[in-house]
Design a protein around this nucleic acid. Structure first.
Length: 124
DNA sequence: CTTCTGACA
DNA sequence: TGTCAGGA
């Protein structure tokens, strides 16, 4: 299939597919006119890439882990190294969440105290 | 008409 | 990421 059909079947825009390719995530054949020619397996591959990007992995990580995640079912054929990468990502996300929660709590605390001080000024 | 490359914000 | 130019 050509790029527009792959785009239609994956919901990923053609220029994004070319970008994936520039990052080493896809390597389609070329037909005589220079158009990219994708096999059916590209649909699965692109869906895997979508999932991993959504999980916050870098395209470098994805390129490295691609042979690792090339099972038929993109949801369940992960190998150990991919699980490690996902867990590492989860860990850094949790750290950021913790930091944000602390900031939020501190800010809320500050607002509460400032609110009381303002009320004292305006009322008495 | 479809796709390609490269450039730009 | 999204858009445009200029060719094939």
């Amino acid at each position: 299939m050509r790029i527009s059909e792959l785009s239609r079947r994956t919901g990923v825009r053609p220029h994004q597919l070319r970008y994936y390719e520039s990052q080493g995530l896809l390597e389609p054949d070329r037909n005589l006119n220079g158009y990219r020619e994708y096999g059916d397996s590209a649909v699965v591959t692109v869906n895997q890439i979508k999932n991993l990007l959504a999980a916050g992995l870098s395209s470098q990580d994805i390129a490295y882990l691609q042979p690792c995640a090339s099972g038929e079912d993109p949801e369940f054929e992960y190998c150990g190294e991919l699980v490690d990468a996902l867990e590492a990502r989860l860990s850094t996300l949790q750290s950021r969440i913790d930091g944000l929660v602390r900031s939020r709590d501190a800010l809320q605390d500050y607002i509460d105290k400032a609110g009381v001080a303002r009320k004292r000024r305006t009322t008495g």
